[in-house]
């Protein structure tokens, strides 16, 4: 599996334990582990809200293209870049596998392109 394939299959989930607060249409996300804060504008929030562990990155791209009626190529690159960056920062994990699920379902708590959570 290539890295691009792995990204396509990745089902990103916002890591539990992050603090979030809305302020004037933007979302502040604070990571108590790194003690860093991100500010997400509305389009970033749309991607962030999709990271619930149910959809793959490819599906998230499709959703964002549909919602924003934007160029698919540009959205594809931007969404992947943002998710890779959040993952690198340890803000995203893969959802924990269902009980009795196949081990190939993925290792819980492991992000793509970032350090183990």
């Amino acid at each position: 599996m290539t890295r691009a394939d792995a990204m396509d299959a990745f089902r990103p989930q916002v890591r539990p334990g992050l603090a979030q607060a809305q302020l004037d249409g933007e979302l502040a996300v604070y990571d108590p582990r790194s003690q860093e804060m991100l500010v997400l504008n509305q389009s970033a929030q749309a991607i962030w809200s999709c990271c619930d562990g149910t959809g793959t990155v490819a599906e998230i791209v499709a959703d964002i293209v549909a919602v924003f009626e934007a160029d698919a190529g540009a959205v594809n690159d931007q969404v992947r870049d943002v998710i890779a960056e959040w993952s690198r920062r340890g803000l995203l994990v893969t959802p924990a596998p269902e009980p009795f699920a196949s081990p190939s379902a993925g290792s819980a708590g492991q992000g793509i392109g970032g350090p183990p959570d």
Partner: peptide
Amino acid sequence: LAQRPQEHLEACA
């Protein structure tokens, strides 16, 4: 802030 992240961040906001 890291002691009670959600409560403290909301208070700061």
